[in-house]
Design a protein around this nucleic acid. Structure first.
Lengths: 124, 124
DNA sequence: CATCTAGTTCGATGTCTGTCGAACTATTCG
DNA sequence: CGAATAGTTCGACAGACATCGAACTAGATG
């Protein structure tokens, strides 16, 4: 798979996408069971979302129906191996859920965990 | 200034402090003027808070009256040079404000910026 | 005014991290 | 069943980053 020159910063395209953010359908006021984060998990989430590419992935995956791995915009700018690396970081941090569908993977945001993370940050 | 062996992870002491979190006085419902974060600033904040030591610093600094640099618990575990390095990261990200008081520095949380950061994350 | 204190900057060091191609596993297709 | 597709893992590489001691600047003290 060909792509443009190696770059640490996301390509302008991805950057702009991250900046604008996908249109988000507002969640109905469903009360999620409270999740309690360990310190390690909190730290892992902070680390996982500090990378602009991983945050951009989370933005896409936050859509109510999730997103198929193959539909991630990152396929246009980084290699499948790197995408896999980032997905692993997010999954191990606990904010991403992967559901295999044949040879495809469907990705979704662990909203309960994300909510707990936000609340932890807001506690400052 | 003496301290224990070099370690990337914060010492248990600092870790526990970060885990428990300082007791936070609930802010009165004062409406802060909305701050708009640029993508770069959002990214810089994410990066700045992803480090456990910097997050622990923010927790201390979030006290309503802020905290004097010399009173940061980090002085027990890392060198002044490293503290300075972390303070610079937080200041440049825009979440920390430094006010010199003679040779001392008083640190406080930019609550407006922090609030904007939380809201940006919650937008997923 | 010399000395001390508080914090900053510089340069070095070792570790971490995002990237890749190649090889791999698992599933689907023709 | 062989070929194609989707995604993963491995090992290597180059750059980023947290750490330090030493030297520095600026303010306070005796």
């Amino acid at each position: 798979m060909k792509r443009t020159a190696q770059s640490r910063e996301p390509q302008v395209k991805a950057g702009k996408a991250a900046a604008k953010g996908a249109a988000v359908v507002k969640q109905p006021p469903v009360k999620l069971p409270a999740v309690k984060l360990t310190d390690e998990q909190f730290q892992a989430i902070s680390h996982a979302v500090s990378d602009p590419r991983r945050f951009a992935i989370l933005q896409q995956v936050a859509a109510p129906s999730g997103v198929a791995c193959g539909d991630l915009r990152e396929h246009e700018v980084i290699s499948p191996a790197t995408i896999s690396h980032h997905l692993k970081e997010l999954t191990e941090a606990g904010v991403l859920e992967v559901e295999r569908d044949g040879r495809c993977a469907n990705l979704s945001l662990r909203r309960d965990v994300w909510q707990a993370y936000i609340e932890r940050l807001a506690g400052l």
